[in-house]
Design a protein around this nucleic acid. Structure first.
Length: 226
DNA sequence: AAACAAATAT
DNA sequence: AATATTTGTT
């Protein structure tokens, strides 16, 4: 049994998408038998109590996420600001605060990105590292200190945010992602990331029909506000 | 529970 | 090819 936290259905599917599905899966008279006739059908799919059917909510597959350059840039920014220590999928996801983006989306992307970074460390010289699959990653500049772990960021653009500590920036006119001076609870185990107002305006993803196979795809950053 | 890397699947 | 999912380990 999957006991995952896949609550994506709470936000994504529009009633128009859900309705036809429910209609094909639940026969009309069954639908009336239960209470879903009561205009409450723009709720997320409840599984039919009859259990005679399969469970669409658990079986339905979320469309693949498209990592646009804009979305990737946001990812890189988040990692840069978090610092390598704090840049784990959950916190990256929170900092990015992109509506509909899941931890697994980020984890998968992070894994690939790390491989890309390793591949580039090898070619620290000058040679192009582009294996043609790296177009996405190449679309956003890699902050220098990603490649040299021992090295501190030369500029204060990437000052790692440490939860308990207060940052002192002398010049603060880089409205990148403003990290609030005080946030969450002090040092303790987990801290809460507030919804950042500037960087964090959650973008409501939309679903696009692409590709000849009719695969549905999720594009979160169609046109950046970046 | 979450992170991680490697392998594998779609 | 790009992303997701699974697996085994910490």
């Amino acid at each position: 049994m999957r006991e995952e936290e896949s609550n994506w259905f709470e936000e994504l599917p529009s009633p128009e998408e859900l309705m036809p599905l429910s209609q094909t899966l639940i026969s009309p008279h069954l639908a009336v038998a239960f209470d879903i006739t009561n205009s409450s059908h723009h709720q997320f799919p409840l599984q039919p109590p009859s259990a005679a059917e399969d469970e669409p909510a658990r079986t339905l597959k979320r469309p693949r996420l498209v990592w646009t350059p804009q979305l990737h840039k946001r990812f890189v920014d988040a990692v840069a600001h978090l610092g390598i220590k704090n840049a784990v999928p959950k916190t990256i996801m929170q900092l990015m605060s992109v509506d509909g983006l899941t931890r697994e989306n980020v984890a998968s992307h992070l894994q690939k990105y790390r491989l890309y970074l390793k591949r580039m460390q090898g070619l620290a010289g000058g040679s192009a590292a582009d294996s043609a699959t790296d177009h996405l990653f190449a679309s956003s500049p890699v902050p220098p200190h990603f490649l040299h772990p021992a090295t501190r960021p030369a500029s204060d653009h990437y000052l790692p945010f440490v939860p308990g500590l207060q940052q002192h920036r002398n010049h603060h006119h880089h409205q990148h992602m403003a990290v609030p001076a005080h946030f969450g609870s002090p040092r303790n185990a987990h801290f809460e990331l507030p919804v950042l107002s500037r960087m964090g305006a959650s973008v409501p993803g939309y679903v696009e029909d692409v590709e000849s196979g009719g695969r549905k795809v999720l594009t979160l950053f169609p046109a950046g506000d970046d």
